[in-house]
Amino acid sequence: MILYVVGRLLAAVPTLLIVAIFIFGLVHIAPGDPAILIAGDNANPEQVDKIRERLHLDRSLPVQFGIWFGNAVTGDLGTSVYSGRPVTELIAQRVEPTFLLALYTIVLTVIIAVPLGTIAAWKANGWLDRAIMGFSVAGFSVPVFATSYLLIYVFAVELRWFPVQGYKALSKGPVETLVSLTLPSIALALVFAALIARVTRAAVLDVIHENFVRTLKAKGMGTRRILVTHVLKTAGVPIVTVIGIGLAALIGGVVVTESVFNIPGIGRLTVDAIVRRDYPVVQGIILFFSLTLIAVNLVVDLSYALFDPRVRG
């Protein structure tokens, strides 16, 4: 088992290197010069040149990559071209809201989606199934910003149960944090619940016609117990995989939700950095994403062992 984990981790190194080179090239190919954006509207060319020099933007690409990579290995991701703050600090500031939002969303998603998907499979092709799948298609099709504005209008502006925007750090109390993340988590959970309910239904349907289920029924076991303890456990692998992919997507891909609800997360940091051609931040984030993705995949792979004894061998 330990060998397996170590092997997986080592295999990630070349992946990271390729990703790093690829991203570095891509970011620099995009037109737009950060020095000019920093200098402001009535800067003269001389001022711009000085800024470019200070940021090493006047060096050749391989040299710039070398400088960056050398520092990255020692944990120094450089400083932001835009704000002059260390990239590691900028990412660290954004990790808490992003991870908590992702976690809250996944918990809500699982609470909503797994029971719904299971029920849909159990009542396959009945009206309940159709209703659940209808809800699922709707959840998936309505753009997340539309749901977000609707949630804000109803629960923040009209009812005033939740704040319109903003994030309250954990250090100010977990209840406030939960409150500030509730609406964005619901908005996201509706989308992911739709996806996971469909996958759960398909996975459960595959299992529900197996012989062992018929045997359990014949033995007179209750439906609920069959579904929860036996069917779901057997159908767990694809469900956990999709949840894992969902979690990874949530960490990087919730820019719209973060923007609408003003959650200072990594997604927004990414988009802002790209728009501003803030090369060190973009590179740092991609590296961070790659590491996160590898970690999530590893956890997902390891969790298969819980559901499938064959993996344990």
């Binding site: 504005y149 502006v157 925007q165 903003g166």
Partner: peptide, 18 residues
């Protein structure tokens, strides 16, 4: 000074006193 990226959200935040 709060950087609320979405203008519609900023208006809502102003209207509820945030």
């Amino acid at each position: 000074i709060i950087n609320i990226p979405d203008t519609a959200t900023a208006v809502d935040a102003l209207l509820v006193g945030e």
